[in-house]
Design a protein around this nucleic acid. Structure first.
Lengths: 343, 343
DNA sequence: CCCATCACCGGAAACGTTTCCAGTGTGCAT
DNA sequence: ATGCACACTGGAAACGTTTCCGGTGATGGG
């Protein structure tokens, strides 16, 4: 920590020119070459670097964007964060990480806090949504982009994915490899992803398209490995009339890992006795043993798209709200491999 | 996005009092109860919320702290980030995530950029360090805390851990369970952790304390699963004169996962034929199959300690530099279990 | 009744920057 | 030679807040 920093006024004095010219010279527009050289030299001698706060106050731009999620420990959000960072950094924007908390009320508080104007925009991926949150977002003083469900009706920018369809892909894949008694380990139903995925599972396992014999859901308290393990123990301890489960769809990769661990406890081989699918296509699932068949929801793409959306909005504010959808994509790996040899 | 926000001046006008009194009333000191009520009411009517930029300009405090790492995807850094966030948020501080880049030069640039004063402090965990970086940190205009190696001589606040000793613990544990031919998969030697861990391995496997028969190092290009897999393939394809490897120490959990995968490729059971240890005690290692024996370096504690250090420094600047050390701790899990049955 | 003390209030400055506006000088064309 | 366009410069205002400082009124003690 050295002495206090040089200010633009000091640079101006040192260069013997006006404050206005100094600013112009450094900023690059409407200054003669001689002026630029002179000011640059003075700035270099003093080790000047422009003060972000002063600049922000005047320009009404902070060059910061907030990214808010409930749990930054979830690898999905880490992937989003990385992608957001990669899009924003080249444009000179910093990323502020915030926590939404786990309730919708705390998320509303967070959105309201944007009123203090410390960021130019917000990217938020709320687990739960309600009208109060929608209102708060609509009235927010800076652009807000929601990653999660589509909010077209509400006139809010959003980047969504069709996780219900993704669940359909997982179920279809399991049927295709000959599994007939399918369990579903979902997260809390009152969350946006939990609700959507339940819808997807129910749709995929009802009606004529479902060629299996049995479908049943067990709910975990949370989208974590531990919760998945507990839920899978409950699910697999039951034996449906049609016979024991031969496949489990998990609502995300962490839950799927819990399911695999539960299967091992019960002596069920994966994928031999029990095929398991995850969702989110995370790094952890890819390196797990067995590597997890998983439905990618394009976390990185969604993050990047949201970041680009914020960038657009910051420049020209009032276009109609945009909805971007990233299609789900199934990646088949060892946890549903057909050949037993692959274990 | 609604209309522009109310300013303190407008609140003052509405309340019919001076700007100074308005500020005092809201801030809480030296104002009569009547004044406070009146101003609060006016503020509420206008939906006033104080502007963070204006306040920062005046107070010379941004209430932001930056956390900079090379790769936010690494679970260790995510744990640190979470811990930092948890310590800082209750004090009203926001966390800005930054990337150091992979070279020491880009890290120096980042530290220099603190000159623009957008944060009150920096927590940085550099992979590589040199004199230029040390100088830059020492001359930084805001407090900087380094997570990594101790920089006591340099007079820089740091939170370190003795990863060399941690490696010793891992080797000792492997010897204790009867392994004698120990391989070491390390990351790049020119990184701070890579160098320290090599030192630890070399110390633990030379001299009279080493009761094994063979010790050998293979270097991975990076601290990732893929690099660990490649390095382990190279290592395990060799057979020392003393006999095939019966244990591998990996320099972190990601590398260890790569090692386990390589072992499986070669038909070596873990821990039966090959015991494997990791380092960092990450969530991913705990849920992996087999769960990884790992040396915890207290990522979360180190993050929290660094955050508290920054908080102290921000308030009273010029105490002597502090060094905090977190001791390594071995957690034994399946990947080095002695009973074969645990597989 | 007068003076000292005290609590409180308002004016004004300051933080560091960008940008509007008016003014100066140069060069070119008529 | 004179006018005009043009490039550049400097003064000053503005962004929103906190805080110093002087001043006012009330209150209590002598």
């Amino acid at each position: 920590m050295s002495s206090s920093r040089a200010t633009l006024i000091q640079v101006a004095e040192r260069a013997g020119v006006s404050l206005a010219s100094t600013s112009r010279a450094l900023h690059g527009t409407g200054a003669s070459q001689k002026m630029v050289d002179r000011v640059r030299a003075a700035a270099a001698e003093l080790g000047y670097s422009p003060d972000a706060i002063g600049r922000s106050l005047r320009m009404k731009r902070t060059f910061q964007v907030a990214f808010a999620v409930a749990d930054i420990g979830n690898p999905v959000y880490v992937e989003m964060l990385t992608a957001i960072h990669e899009v924003l950094a080249p444009h000179g924007y910093r990323v502020v990480v915030m926590s939404t908390g786990h309730t919708v009320a705390s998320t509303v508080d967070l959105v309201r806090s944007l009123g203090s104007g410390f960021v130019d925009g917000l990217i938020v991926s709320p687990l739960r949504t309600d009208d109060a949150l929608v209102d708060a977002i609509r009235e927010a003083p800076v652009p807000v982009v929601v990653i999660g469900r589509s909010l077209e009706q509400q006139g809010i920018d959003s980047v969504s994915t069709d996780s219900a369809a993704g669940l359909g892909q997982a179920v279809a894949h399991l049927l295709e490899i000959g599994r007939r008694r399918i369990g579903f380990v979902n997260g809390p139903l009152d969350t946006t992803p939990g609700a959507a995925r339940q819808r997807g599972f129910d749709a995929a396992t009802s009606g004529p398209a479902f060629t299996g014999d049995h479908a049943e859901t067990e709910r975990a308290d949370d989208f974590t490995v531990a919760a998945g393990l507990a839920a899978a123990r409950r699910l697999l301890s039951r034996t449906p009339a049609a016979g024991p489960f031969d496949a489990v769809v998990a609502a995300n990769d962490l839950l799927a890992i819990g399911v695999v661990r539960a299967a091992r406890e019960l002596g069920l081989s994966v994928p031999g006795a029990l095929a398991v699918t995850g969702m989110d296509d995370t790094e952890i699932g890819r390196v797990f043993q067995p590597s997890l068949t998983s439905v990618s929801l394009g976390s990185a793409e969604r993050g990047a798209a949201a970041a680009r959306l914020v960038l657009d909005r910051v420049d020209d504010g009032a276009e109609p709200a945009q909805q971007i959808a990233i299609g789900p994509r199934l990646f088949v790996r060892e946890s549903t491999a057909q050949e037993e040899s692959a274990r």
